[in-house]
Computed example of a mutant assay.
Amino acid sequence: MSWNTVKIKKGSLALAAGLLLLGTTAVQAQDAVEGKKIFDANCSACHSIETDVVGPALKDVHKRRDEAWIKKFVKNSTEMIQSGDPTAKEVFEKYGKVQMASFGGQLSDSDIDNVIAYVKEESEKPAAAAATPAADSGTEAEAAAAPKEVSFMELPPLVHITIALSGIIVLLIIATLIMLIRLFIPMLGDSIYDEDFRSSFAGRVLFLMRGDATVVTGKAKDEIHSNHDFDGIQEYDNDLPPWWKYMFYVSIVFAIGYMLHFHVFNSGLLQEQEYELEMQQAALFAASADNDPNAVTNFEVLTDAAALESGKSTFLTNCAACHGQEAQGTVGPNLTDEYWLHGGNVNDIFKTVKFGVPAKGMVPWQGKLSKDQILEVSSYILSLQGTNPANAKEPQGEKQ
């Protein structure tokens, strides 16, 4: 065999290997495309790639779980939980004990392989940039325009000097007053103990500084107020504490001002009036807010065939994963009987679909479906009343 022949064979092998790799990549890409369709139709109601919804986020799930386990769990999660599989039980407990719908009768092994291929592809995508450069520059401009907090030590030296001089002046004034008091008190002699001086403001301040607390507590005269007693209990004529009397005087002044403000000049709102005003403001705010679950709605059930067909399409795409293809109930409740957990008229169903019931695993659809789509699917659900599909779930809630 000549050297040229060996070269040709090696080149042929390399070419074949390259074509094989390219073909494999193309097949994987096609699998991911099919997997996305299956995911959107069956899984997106309860799962997301990046974040937890009803079930866990699926990013890198192929690295955390064996593919054979994933297939088995997708086909019949209930059976795995009941069999005591520790991983299945852990997922069931962690996500509010909401069982995943069983897809054994709907998805084949190849369908699940395609979904795994789609999850792999999405998991390997780099995270999106948090902000564009233009947004960054705008943020920097806003930060520059915002007032900056300055610590005391960063203030100009002139401010420090001014504050220090002010403190020195205050201290000098206090020291001067103390010196004057110490100078003039000895000159007064015993006259400071005269009742007239002690009862004056200056006398009270002086004796308070010398430790006499009667200006605050009042005098204890220890004199019997009257000759009557009750079982040996006698009443003394002592002063009320001055602090109590001052608070009483302040409360009288406050009461007069309160009466004039609220009942004479009517310049203030009473509690009932304030409550009514705030309720009116809240009602106006709620009326303008699209996301208020307590806002009153007055939708009518749609009955035309086109709207119901559109509602059916929306239901099969988004709701069937949890409620069944015929709304017979799987993870979610049966929607074809007369029993409802959250109200059975079109407005109740509209709100349940729009805002969801996260505590029970029902996701809010207001960010994914338009108002018209939610009304259409709500009307379609009501059109299924009494259809009695096979394998219907037991009634839940109250009869409507």
Rank of each mutant, 00 (worst) to 15 (best):
M259S: 09
K97A: 10
V205H: 03
N298P: 00
A141H: 01
L171F: 14
D109Y: 06
S379A: 09
V253L: 13
S370H: 05
I81T: 11
D194P: 01
I81G: 10
D113M: 07
D136N: 07
D337R: 04
A16K: 06
D229H: 12
F207L: 10
A146I: 03
H62A: 14
P126G: 03
D304W: 09
A305P: 00
P147I: 04
G361F: 02
F184E: 04
Q328D: 03
A134T: 02
Q396E: 13
L155Y: 07
V301R: 09
L335E: 09
F201A: 08
K393Y: 01
Y339W: 13
P133M: 01
D66H: 11
K221H: 14
A88G: 09
A144E: 12
F262I: 00
N345T: 10
I181L: 14
C319W: 12
G167M: 12
A57R: 13
A164T: 13
Q106V: 14
N388I: 07
I252F: 05
A144F: 05
S199K: 15
Q82M: 15
G218K: 06
L172G: 07
S12I: 11
I181G: 13
V150I: 12
L19M: 12
H47K: 02
S83N: 15
K71T: 13
R64I: 00
